[in-house]
Every structure is written in structure tokens, then in C-alpha cells.
Amino acid sequence: MDDRRRAADQSGQWSNDHGQNAGGFFKAIGAIVWKDLRAEFRSWELISAMLVFSLLVILIFNFALELDIKTRQSVTAGVLWATFAFAGTLGLNRSMALEKDRGCLDGLLLAPVDRSAIYFGKFFSNLAFMLIVEAIVLPVYSVLYNTNLFQPGLLLVILLGSVGYTSIGTLLATMSVQTRARDILLPILLFPVVFAVLLAAVRASGGILDNLTIADIAFPINLLITYDVIFIAASFMLFDSIVEE
């Protein structure tokens, strides 16, 4: 084995410093995203749960509120983000539970890569799942509430809000999945932290739907961008200490 290993090291077949270079870092992120998407598109376990939940929430709001067209438009931003937030919690929980239940999180942590690569891999996967669900929910919502949601500004706000929500959500889901009360713990941890993102997202979305000027909605959008940067930076720094015993 030693000879094989030595020869492999010399030929570059096995890279011991995989985790130490930028190429390895990005390859690891890509590998995790590939693995998550491949597994999900085979089972549809996570997206289908998020999607069914989202559609049910929208339907319940639709029938419960019984609003006229004008009032419906005024509650759109709130209903939309409440739906994304609750469905997102389901997805984050399930995504990390799949890693934990078969010991796969340990498998990831055993790889010789910088552990922040694992965080970013899971973050991009979770973001992809959330965006897929949102892409399906938006047209359904548009039809049910008779509101055009396909506005570039609104799509940008949804992207920014989803990035903020998923970045901190991935970190907190990694933390909560290691406890017995993970299903209950994640929303308890997540919602107080992500409240500011949701508030900014609702304000920005509402402003766009009300056709306010860019100057009027600049503040919540800037706030969203700031939260995104802070949450990603904080998660990048904290992930290693969260996953280590």
C-alpha cells in the first residue's frame, strides 16, 4: 500500500492537500451540491414536502381571508414571505436530517476539505431547493390572488431574501439537527434571527407591488443585502465550531 500511495502521491493521483487549495474548496462545494440535487431529483422527498406545504398555506390564506382584489394585493407580500419562511424551515430541517440520520454529516466532516466548503455546499443546495419551490409557488399565487408577481424587482427581492434566510438557516439547522428536539428547535432558533430579513423582504416586496419608486424601496433592499453579507460571513466563521464536538 505504501508503494502504491507513494506512486500515487508523486503522480498527483491522490491529493493530500485537497482542502488547502482554492480548487479543492470549490470542487468540494460543487460535489455537495451535485450530490444533494442528484439525490433530491431521484426521491423528490424534500421539494415535494416544501411544495405541498406552500400550496396548502396559500390556499388556506386565500379562503380564510376572503379579501377583495385591492386588499388581496396589499397582503400579498406578507402571505408570500410567511409561506416561504414556513416551507423553508421544513426544507432546512429535512436537508440536514438526511445528513445526520445515516451519519453522512460525519462523512462530510471526515473529508480533508475546509469545513466552510461543507457549509457553502449545503447553503447552495438549500438555496436551490428554496428557489425551485418559489418558482412553482409564484405562478400559482399569481393565479389564485390575481396578482402579477413576475416583476424583475420582486424576483430580485425574493432572491435576496432567500439568500439571507437560507444562509443563516443552514447554520442553525446544522446546530439544531444535532439535538433530539430538532424539529421544534429550528424554528425557535431561526425565526427570531431571521425576523429582520423577513421584515425587510416584506417591505421591499410590498413596495414593488405598490409600484413605489426605487428611492422608496432602496432602504429595505440595502438592508437585505447587508443582512445577506453579515449572515454569510457569520456562518462562514461559526460553522467549524458548530460541527465539532
Binding site: W14, S15, N16, D17, H18, G19, K35, R38, A39, E40, R42, S43, E45, L98, R102, G103, C104, D106, G107, L110, A111, P112
Partner: peptide, 17 residues
């Protein structure tokens, strides 16, 4: 970690792959 392999009683494998 680059020089170590680990086998536990959990498989550390993904069932849907």
C-alpha cells in the same frame, strides 16, 4: 483526514444515490 479512513456502525452513505 487525508490519511485516514473511518468505518462506523452507521454507513455514512446516501440511500438515494
Amino acid at each position: 483526514r487525508a490519511r485516514l479512513g473511518v468505518v462506523s456502525h452507521l454507513p455514512l452513505l446516501y440511500g438515494d444515490l
